[in-house]
Design a binder for these strands. Structure first.
Length: 309
DNA sequence: TCACAATGAACAA
DNA sequence: TGTTCCTTGTGAC
């Protein structure tokens, strides 16, 4: 259940663990057997994220595109028994038997005689392994082999990603794409063709951080605000990639920040806080459906005059 | 045991 | 706008 920061972390982790190495690939579940066979026993050359897309570039111009969707995840297990639940930023699953732990805690395998590699558990679409590391992919919305041309097509469709900033144009492209649609800003921020990597949590939080009415037309925002939105997404994304946590509150002292890193309920201004008091004005946070997704906002702080609906 | 939700997006109509 | 797909964990019975 990742937003852009998670996918960047996975890309970085795979670069560290796998780049330059020959990988054995398989599809224990069977749904990616042909693709796995084609990349197996070849070298991983690149591991790159753009927004929520992960591109793994192998020899012979073979590229695996992975999109985790709403509940996909990678489990990474090393021979030492450490296990990282990369798709779930706030938990780490550990060796057999699986134990859930809070962030930052690590633990080695309970029994040291656990076989390596461990047998796949559940629906593992793709397993990548070296002699001492295994990465299991479960529940992706997409896992496919693509050509360099196919990759270009996909990249061309994506809105800018601050972590993949091609010069200074990204902010301008973001502004351009907002300017050409009258759809509500709350909807547009989640459109991966407009800006890459923002999901339901970051959407709600960014809107609140700018006291922005989710129902305002994207093309009604002034240039300065649009610029601030772009810069802010860059700040939040960089922070998320660094910490692995979507920490969107700036109104915290060191103690509060430590608490927010542990308690998900403390981490956000509005996301998931329906009915609870706004952290700024105490008005109850509202949840409303917007195009099949839950939108959270403060009806007081994020009001604009003349909002329709 | 079962229903349901979850940080997503493609597709149909 | 609604439906479908992908998988797992939780909480109610």
């Amino acid at each position: 259940m990742p937003e852009g920061h998670t996918v960047h972390r996975i890309a970085q982790l795979f670069t560290e663990l796998f780049a330059g190495q020959v990988l054995v690939a398989s599809s224990p579940q069977g749904r990616f057997s042909e693709g796995a066979a084609l990349i197996s026993a070849t070298t991983l050359l690149t591991s790159q994220a753009i927004g929520k897309q992960l591109f793994l570039g192998f020899e012979a111009d073979r590229c695996v595109r992975v999109h985790l969707g709403i509940y996909g995840a990678w489990d990474v297990i090393s021979r030492s028994g450490e296990l990282t639940r990369a798709g779930s930023p706030d938990t780490v699953s550990l060796g057999a038997p699986r134990v859930r732990r809070r962030i930052g805690e690590t633990e080695t395998s309970i029994s040291s005689d656990v076989a390596f590699p461990p047998p796949p558990v559940g629906q593992v679409r793709l397993r990548l392994e070296t002699s001492d590391t295994v990465a299991d992919l479960r529940g992706p919305t997409a896992c496919e082999l693509i050509t360099p041309e196919g990759r270009e097509v996909i990249e061309a469709r994506l809105g800018p990603d601050p972590m993949h900033d091609r010069g200074k144009k990204s902010g301008a492209i973001f502004a351009q794409r907002l300017a050409r649609t009258s759809r509500p800003i709350g909807l547009v921020l989640m459109d991966q063709g407009v800006v890459s990597g923002i999901g339901n949590v970051y959407r709600a939080e960014i809107l609140f951080r700018h006291r922005l009415d989710p129902y305002l037309s994207a093309n009604s925002l002034d240039a300065e605000l649009v610029h601030r939105l772009w810069k802010d997404w860059g700040v939040l994304l960089a922070r998320g990639v660094q910490t692995g946590v979507m920490m969107t509150r700036d109104d915290l002292d060191a103690k509060g920040k430590a608490l927010a890193l542990e308690e998900r309920g403390e981490r956000y201004f509005v996301y998931g806080r329906q009915g609870q008091p706004c952290r700024v004005c105490r008005t109850p946070i509202v949840m409303a459906m917007m195009a099949t997704r839950k939108l959270y906002f403060c009806p007081q702080c994020q009001t604009s005059i003349g909002r329709s609906s």
